[in-house]
Simulated scan of single mutants.
Amino acid sequence: MTAVPDFVLGADEFRLLRHALHEALVPSGVFRVEGSGALQCVQGVYTNDVLRHAPNALMWGGVLTPKGMIVFDMWVLRDGDAAWMIVPGSAHDTASAAFARTFPPRIAKVTDRTGDVAISWILGHNPPAGPGVIVPAGPAPFSALRIREDGNDDSALPPPVAPAEWVNAARLLAGWPALGREIDDRTLPQEVRFDALDGVRHDKGCYTGQETVARLHFRGHPNRTLRGLRWHDARPTGSDVLIGERNVGTISTWGLIDGRALGMAKLRREVDTGADVDAGGATATVVELPFNDE
């Protein structure tokens, strides 16, 4: 992380983000899986419970290593006995290889639709009903997801189109982790709010990485958890979070809303909510996520 904020919103922009409808294209890898074993194959690699959700449900979760580390997070939209799998754009190649390795094409044929399907977030209240507009079954950093199967032409989106940085703002306000920011190759689901965000089910059948996730849930606790930071006056100029001279975390996302600096960091569990810390060289207070009071 650098001293450059991930987004800057004035008071009017923030009000529009919270209360007016906007649509933002989000770079994504998009795959569709079909076949007699499609849902069972997704179920076997996914932290959420695809089979328990309704036939048209949109849910969030993750694909893990056998040791329980997050490989990538993923939205899954059930479409009857088939499913759409939507991953961050940076995870496209990794996801493609993972599906090729673990999904037998005879019963679960995966088609890469990234080139001809666009994914966008609808931000604001009361998203309009329409083709491809799906309201999530649980928490989300958006009010609806839109899947457009007719290409990526922005002109086809209803105005107004949100600036790209509003995606990071919506994500931060929701306390939502992102691959390459809050999530890296050593991150466990419980460290980045998967429980709070309904991204993992502890009562489903086996999936890759479940043993570590279950052991941590029922018998232990993560050493780090994702928390919010609210700076007092100054802005961060670095990424380290310190108590005294001890490093207790790293700022992963931050931005300015009406001149106020807010951010997220994975912090050591012994750091109390409400504590003041040195966050990037400036004093900030540790707060729980999401930022509901902003």
Rank of each mutant, 00 (worst) to 15 (best):
H53D: 05
A265G: 15
A140C: 15
T2A: 13
L256A: 04
S36Y: 01
R15Q: 13
K67N: 15
P163Q: 04
D154S: 14
V4N: 14
S143Y: 08
S155R: 13
D233A: 11
N126I: 11
P104F: 05
N56K: 10
V287S: 05
S36I: 00
A265W: 13
E13D: 12
A91P: 04
T187N: 11
E270M: 07
A140K: 05
G274E: 08
V71R: 08
P27R: 06
W166A: 02
L123V: 03
G255V: 01
M59V: 10
W121N: 10
R78Y: 06
W75D: 06
E13L: 01
A156Y: 09
I86Q: 00
T253A: 02
G259K: 12
S252Y: 05
G62R: 07
A82E: 01
L58C: 01
I183T: 04
P159L: 08
A234Y: 08
G238S: 13
I86D: 02
D258Y: 07
N247S: 13
V286D: 00
T65I: 10
T273Q: 13
E211W: 08
G280Y: 00
V241F: 02
M264V: 11
T250C: 11
R230E: 15
F194H: 06
P141L: 10
Q43W: 10
I119C: 03
V50N: 07
W166R: 03
S120E: 07
F218A: 04
R219S: 10
G115W: 09
A174H: 10
T187S: 08
L21S: 10
G274Y: 04
V45H: 06
W121Y: 13
L229R: 05
P105S: 02
K266F: 00
N292M: 10
G281T: 15
S252M: 05
A282W: 12
M264T: 14
P104E: 00
G115D: 13
M69Q: 15
R32L: 01
L197A: 00
L242A: 06
M74N: 01
P177G: 01
R186W: 09
T114D: 04
I243C: 01
L267H: 07
V42G: 01
P136A: 07
V135D: 03
P128E: 12
S155G: 14
A265I: 12
T283H: 11
V110F: 01
N247A: 09
P139Q: 15
L256M: 14
D184W: 11
V71D: 05
V213L: 07
P236C: 06
T285G: 13
V63R: 01
A118C: 02
G10Q: 06
V200R: 00
G281N: 14
T114L: 04
I257Y: 03
V117L: 04
S90G: 12
A140H: 09
R106D: 15
L188P: 09
D293C: 04
L242D: 00
N48S: 05
R171N: 08
D93R: 14
V110M: 03
P104Q: 03
N126Y: 07
W231R: 08
S96W: 07
G151V: 02
A156W: 10
A54Q: 14
G44L: 03
M1W: 11
W84Y: 12
P160N: 10
I122P: 00
R230A: 11
S90P: 05
V287T: 14
G255I: 00
W75E: 12
I147P: 01
W121Q: 07
T94I: 09
